[in-house]
């Protein structure tokens, strides 16, 4: 693999993960309760534990979060 190709791949992966870290940080503070009622009042240790997964799967998380926000409050 050429060095430039490797740099592009790693830059893309880094950018994806940077966005993921930002989304995950906001999500575990303000979003997790809205997509899963069982997370309401959950401890910080739990929120910290799910944050690597939220950073890796941030497109899924973002979509679920937006869907939850669009649903009318019951």
């Amino acid at each position: 693999m050429a060095i430039e190709t490797a740099r592009i791949i790693l830059f893309a992966a880094g950018a994806y993960l940077t966005i993921g870290v930002v989304v995950a940080a906001v999500f575990v503070i303000a979003g997790v309760d809205s997509i899963d009622h069982a997370a309401k009042g959950s401890p910080w240790s739990f929120r910290l534990l799910i944050s690597p997964g939220a950073a890796a799967l941030w497109p899924v998380i973002l979509r679920r979060w937006i869907d939850a926000a669009r649903k009318p409050h019951r």
């Binding site: 069982a38 997370a39 959950s42 739990f46 534990l49």
Partner: peptide, 8 residues
């Protein structure tokens, strides 16, 4: 089972 989450 799901009522509230704990970390472990």
């Amino acid at each position: 089972m799901s009522v509230g989450y704990t970390w472990v």
